[in-house]
Design a protein around this nucleic acid. Structure first.
Lengths: 331, 331
DNA sequence: CTGTTAGCGCGTTCAG
DNA sequence: CTGAACGCGCTAACAG
């Protein structure tokens, strides 16, 4: 499979390399006649320009890098789609990389992306420390951080209004008469987790509710683990009548734990999730949860990045709105 | 941000370009001494090789293309992760592209991937016709098809054992005493759909059960649409005591339809899904479904592709086993 | 063991 | 309006 090159097209069309280049890139200074002749030959030969040869001279590859913890997580898979959508619309392709929450893997992936010469990077929930991260980002012409901010760095960021989301969720529980509200807070080092915890604490405080430290329990964001954590929490704090959960998977674990302990949801214990993944409306009882614009995060991150690449002015931080979805688990 | 080049490293280390190249690519014919000296300079300068310059001469970019209909679908997001995992292990990066089931978009995406000079392509559920597809694939050095075969072409394929999976699912229903078994068959043009329908028909025939044409209803693979289709089907064919569904989302629709019609699952109507997506075990009643190795499809597709790229011998078709997961919806 | 010479396929000078 | 030369950053051939 010998690749067809511009020289082949030029020879076949009886023109010079330059003319072919001009015809392909829609530059002016070329007659309509020769332009269409060149295009005909391109078509006939099935010529495809070499993006990498072009990239070598233009210094632009038309590619973006997207780094997420785990693309099989519905949260990130929608973000990915949003990014890809924005990229496609502008003729860019995107490298998708999974870090599996492993900082070392994250380093490797970032390095490979610099070697691939991506025009920009979108980094989702990075595990690296500020110092390393900042250093790594310097290798990229442009970058956007999702769900994290980093001090003293040119990279912009986008995130959902997590603290506010937690606030309205907990306020809703309070309005429904709950005051003993526990929280299954997710991973302790999660940036979103901190914001959500913060929103929870603030809402309790604003309502004049004294929160017990034992009401808060960190847990890994998976169904089985959080089920165990929920059993623990509900056993040690039987006074709790409601649980606010880090995310929907944790909330599902909490529902399972409640059933396991013979407590009815929502009659004996109300449960609120976060993220509104597709699952949320389909489990029984359907989850009351905070809806997040996952796809939109990705899409806007993509557009922010493309704007940055093209040198347009950019705001440093975008915060996307959230919405409480009232369903059965906490009506 | 002036990029550091090999020339900078060479000058700084007091050696020639070639020596730097050799040191970086672990070629022999270079003393351990100078190698480490070069590496030190590389480290100090923060030099990163340009993959695209390298690709221009080696004709290999270390990238793969992955084309799926929709990465936010849990099926494909796991396939993606499998592909990326295999690629990462061998130092490759992967371009993820969504076609959104749009043939035109698929063409565009494939063309952009050829310009990016990917070393290989994995194409999932292509919408293009055999002729176009075959022509498009010729632009790629190597390719693997997921869930589709194409005649007279060098590209290998991988898929799950869909027909057999449908067979064991329906046989299970028959063993439990059902004979009036309907099928919500998914999109009519789906390759997997055809195989599953086929397995369903064969199982009925083998059991000597006469199937009524009206028992089969095609539907789009989404919860709301299939709920409507299921209401239709159950209303027009009240004799049905079991439903075999194209996939789990359709099965969830069928469960909702049953509830809507006041029929209990599984007492009045047994329901079996397909794919075993994460959701399946979490809905109520938990879905009996056919488990598919989604991640494994991706991973093995990736490894097949890499083997092909490296010229290793390859079998033309891999069929992955499936397994019936007995849960509540059809015990 | 190391350096020199030639391109890879394209776009960007500059001349015609 | 068109073409010839040069170079992007790197590696494959050869030399030394």
């Amino acid at each position: 499979m010998q690749r067809i090159t511009m020289a082949d097209v030029a020879r076949e069309a009886g023109v010079s390399l330059m003319t072919v280049s001009r015809a392909l890139n829609d530059k002016d200074g070329i007659s309509e006649d020769t332009r269409s002749r060149v295009h005909a030959v391109v078509e006939r030969l099935g010529y495809r320009p070499s993006g990498i040869a072009r990239g070598l001279v233009t210094k632009r590859t038309g590619t973006l890098g997207l780094v997420v913890p785990d693309n099989s997580n519905p949260y990130f898979s929608e973000v990915s789609r949003g990014v890809e959508h924005a990229a496609f619309a502008r003729g860019y392709n995107v490298f998708l990389c999974n870090t599996e929450e492993d900082p070392q893997r994250e380093s490797i992936v970032l390095q490979s992306l610099t070697e691939k010469q991506v025009d920009g990077l979108i980094l989702c929930s990075p595990r690296l420390l500020d110092g390393e991260l900042s250093k790594a980002l310097n290798y990229f012409p442009a970058s956007i951080l999702i769900n994290r901010v980093i001090e003293n760095h040119a990279s912009s960021a986008i995130r959902s209004d997590d603290d506010n989301g937690a606030g309205i969720a907990v306020q809703h529980l309070i309005k429904r008469g709950h005051s003993a509200i526990g929280m299954l807070a997710g991973p302790e080092r999660s940036f979103s987790g901190r914001l959500r915890l913060n929103g929870y604490l603030t809402a309790l405080k604003d309502a004049g509710i004294q929160h017990e430290p034992e009401w808060i329990q960190f847990c890994s964001p998976m169904v089985e683990d959080s089920q165990k954590a929920a059993v623990d929490l509900l056993t040690h704090c039987p006074e709790l009548t409601a649980l606010f959960c880090f995310n929907d998977l944790v909330a599902v674990g909490a529902i399972k734990a409640s059933m396991q302990l013979g407590r009815r949801v929502p009659e004996d214990i109300a449960i609120v999730g976060f993220d509104d993944i597709p699952l949320a409306s389909l489990v029984t009882p359907a989850l009351t949860t905070v809806h997040i614009l996952r796809y939109e995060i990705g899409r806007q991150a993509g557009e922010m990045l493309l704007a940055k690449i093209e040198g347009k002015p950019m705001q440093a931080l975008t915060v996307l709105p959230v919405e409480l979805m009232l369903r059965t688990s906490a009506p």
